[in-house]
């Protein structure tokens, strides 16, 4: 039990997918202008990432490894992830038009969210078992959501601040992301045992 909790903590905070592994930067900068959109994006990503971790684990262990097709891993993963995202998009469009309006064009962005593929590949690299893979996906996604929402909060405030012209927009967002990353370095070496 403790082990799984630690795994969650470690993937969410210490080895944060955005701030430490630098994955998923496009949605991090793209969908962080409004807190509401960030929350929606975070939830959708959490769902997809967990789902993708599970699906790719199954694909890897039940198809690619037995057939010795490791070289097809990236292609196979991309296909599975793209299909999962498409499915989620359709389901959301039907079940929650409001959420769909909020996420809008960003849902397809999850397809190309390198965090999703990255986490799936890291799972293989780590040789994780099924439960570990699922938790790793979920923990990474939680960390992604946490940082995305924090960042969106700051950006909403920055939108009202008198940022100098030279820094306004993307530059100040990147500086902020850097400072956020600096703050998260406080967790480095976190050892709960």
């Amino acid at each position: 039990m403790t082990e799984y909790l630690l795994l969650l903590m470690s993937t969410a905070v210490v080895n944060n997918v955005i701030l430490v592994k630098f994955l998923g930067l496009c949605p991090f900068l793209g969908v962080s202008k409004k807190i509401d959109a960030a929350i929606g994006m975070g939830l959708a990503t959490t769902f997809v990432l967990t789902l993708a971790s599970v699906a790719t684990w199954m694909l890897d262990h039940w198809l690619l490894v037995p057939l010795d097709l490791g070289y097809l891993r990236i292609v196979g993963f991309i296909v599975v992830i793209a299909a999962a995202v498409q499915f989620v998009e359709m389901a959301i469009k039907k079940s929650s038009p409001q959420l769909y309006q909020v996420l809008g064009i960003y849902l397809p962005l999850i397809t190309t969210n390198c965090a999703v593929l990255g986490v799936a590949l890291l799972n293989v690299q780590n040789g994780a078992d099924f439960l570990h893979a699922t938790l790793y996906g979920f923990g990474s996604a939680t960390g992604f959501t946490l940082v995305l929402i924090l960042f969106a909060g700051i950006r909403e405030r920055l939108a009202l601040a008198a940022v100098p012209k030279a820094f306004a927009g993307a530059p100040i967002s990147l500086i902020t992301a850097g400072l956020l990353s600096l703050a998260f370095m406080g967790f480095s070496g976190l050892n709960l045992t």
Partner: peptide
């Protein structure tokens, strides 16, 4: 052969699933 077959099957299965979903979740 295994690689071609498995990717084909995978693609076909997922495509079929999505096709069904597109019908089911169709929105005007």
């Amino acid at each position: 052969l295994a690689a071609v077959t498995s990717l084909t099957v995978l693609g076909a299965a997922l495509g079929l699933g999505l096709g069904i979903a597109a019908r089911r979740f169709h929105v005007e």
